[in-house]
Simulated assay, not measured.
Amino acid sequence: MNGQLPFARGFLVSAERDEAVPLKFNGTYIGANHGAFFGVALPVGPAVSIGSEWTDQKGAGFRVVSLEKGIATFISSEHSLSGSWKFKTVVDGDLTEVGGGAKLSSKGQSRAQIYPSVRRVSISVRSDKHQSLAEEFKAVSKVSVDEVYDVLSPTKERSVMARVSVAYVFQGNGTTIQTTVRAVQDLHGFSLAGAQIYPLNASGTDLLQRVESGEQLSSWTAVGRTGVALRIATKQHSASQRIEMVSFQFGHSAVVRGAALNGKPLPLVERIDVSAVHKQYLMAIEGGAGGFSGNLRAGDVVTVSAYRSYWTGKEPPASAF
């Protein structure tokens, strides 16, 4: 449960529903749970099928890529060279089915993400003794979770753009995160956060956030239930959040420790982004920072290391960073 209810087994500190960081390249966030933001969603009737092709009143081509609960997601043909990822994201007028003549109204259209955006390659869970975990419970000093997935192009070919490997090591209240991205094709405008902090369970109290030495949120600040997205300059590469109730005082911190391109260290981005729903993204790599152009060539490998930890009290201990 998410409420302020002490149980014999403890209090839910964080639901951790969304803590994997996406990549950003070719003009969109993609990977983790993000799809390329180039789609158009429309309410449709039962005659529409996945893969069917349509044109709008200006002659732009669209294809149905997914269909769920009466809502179809369309993606247009590329409006430049193949692989440019330049798509039309607004349908002009009615859509007419290619080869069929059926028509669809574009009323009620909205921007949508294109799924699936990834293809899982492997996932493994191991204990400190490098053994797969069994069904029975055993005390171990650490648990390692390794996931590998391919990021897919939103185009019809669904070609692999990059391979992402994320290695988590859970030990006590801390987690090390090692993210590796190998470009399979050229990627433009590449950026990557090293870690994300999902908002703590703050039912019944204020969620307090802080960006260490940030131009904003430099001291503990109650962020409320709604907010605006922030891009906060800082040289510390770390952020925290906490709650305080009569019986509970705890927090969560994260820090980006390093980044490299093809084995050569890169200066870290001096910025932390906070979303409107208070997720904290600790930026690591971005074009224009530290001499990085923002473009990856096929075969380039980016690595980022980060650390997250939970703690009790009003201030994070030194070990949190």
Score class of each variant (00 low, 15 high):
Phe7Met: 14
Gly10Asn: 08
Phe11Val: 15
Glu19Ala: 10
Val21Leu: 04
Gly27His: 13
Thr28Lys: 12
Ile30Leu: 14
His34Gln: 14
Gly35Gln: 06
Val48Tyr: 07
Ser49Leu: 12
Trp54Phe: 10
Trp54Arg: 05
Asp56Tyr: 08
Lys58Asp: 11
Gly61Phe: 08
Lys69Tyr: 05
Lys69Asn: 15
Ile75Ser: 05
Leu81Cys: 00
Gly83Gln: 07
Ser84Trp: 06
Ser84Asp: 09
Phe87Ser: 08
Lys88Thr: 13
Val90Glu: 15
Asp92His: 10
Asp94Pro: 07
Val98Leu: 15
Lys103Asn: 08
Ser105Arg: 07
Ser105Met: 06
Lys107Cys: 00
Gln109Cys: 09
Arg111Met: 06
Ala112Asn: 07
Pro116Gln: 12
Ser117Phe: 06
Val118Leu: 15
Ile123Trp: 03
Lys129Thr: 14
Val143Tyr: 05
Leu152Met: 07
Ser153Leu: 02
Pro154Thr: 03
Glu157Asn: 14
Ser159Asp: 10
Val164Asp: 01
Ser165Gly: 11
Val166Pro: 00
Gly172Lys: 03
Thr175His: 00
Thr175Met: 10
Thr176Ala: 06
Ile177Tyr: 01
Val181Ile: 15
Arg182Ile: 14
Arg182Gln: 14
Ala183Arg: 06
Gln185Trp: 00
Gln185Ala: 11
Phe190Tyr: 13
Thr205Arg: 14
Leu207Pro: 01
Glu212Gly: 02
Ser213Ile: 02
Arg231Asn: 09
Arg231Leu: 08
Ile232Val: 15
Gln236Val: 02
Ala239Val: 03
Ala239Gly: 12
Gln241Phe: 03
Ile243Met: 12
Phe248Ala: 04
Gln249Ile: 01
Gln249Tyr: 01
Gly251Arg: 03
Gly251Lys: 03
Ala254Asn: 03
Val256Pro: 03
Gly258Asp: 13
Ala259Met: 11
Pro265Glu: 11
Pro267Ala: 10
Leu268Thr: 08
Asp273Phe: 01
Ser275Gln: 04
Phe292Thr: 06
Asp300Gly: 05
Ser305Cys: 07
Thr312Lys: 09
Thr312Leu: 13
Glu315Cys: 02
Pro317Glu: 14
